[in-house]
Amino acid sequence: MINDKHSQKIVDYIQNWSRKHSIWVLAYGTGCGAIEIPPTMTSRYDAERLGVRGAATPRQADVLLITGYLTVKTLKRVIRVYEQMQDPKYVIGFGSCTINGGMYYDSYNTINVLDKYLPVDVYINGCMPRPEAVLSGFAQLQKRIAEGRADGAAQYKENLEWYRANQKRIIPNWVMPEYNW
């Protein structure tokens, strides 16, 4: 579209700047961590001053917050939701459960490592993370967006086969639609 390297740089800068200030989070809670979202969003911590606010549907949202452990059953829905989201889209893994299984590491039906199934841009650790930690996670995401490093969605597209293989390993009856993004 724009061949000139310098103009491209300026366009990218403006694009990332505007993206970073309107992070809309899909209102979709899994696990226990979702209970930290209301205090983060409401007046005490007021995440909206960073441009973080809720979105009603996957198509309107920019960020998918995985707020805790995921059972295989939920993972299926989460993958579907993620694939319906439109670019730009980011994933934040929230809580120890998404990082290494947390205290459910030996549970028979919850996944342990989220980034095997979805591309995670930022992890927030803690069980569960307090709103300050959540805000710092969002700040981190903003930084990464500004630097153009939050490219999870691009990686997902590129390595779709690898992700699909991992997903299908625990979801044997794959009855999901293929999205042609």
Partner: peptide, 8 residues
């Protein structure tokens, strides 16, 4: 769990 879901 270890067999089915990788441990980090």
């Amino acid at each position: 769990a270890e067999k089915t879901f990788w441990n980090r």
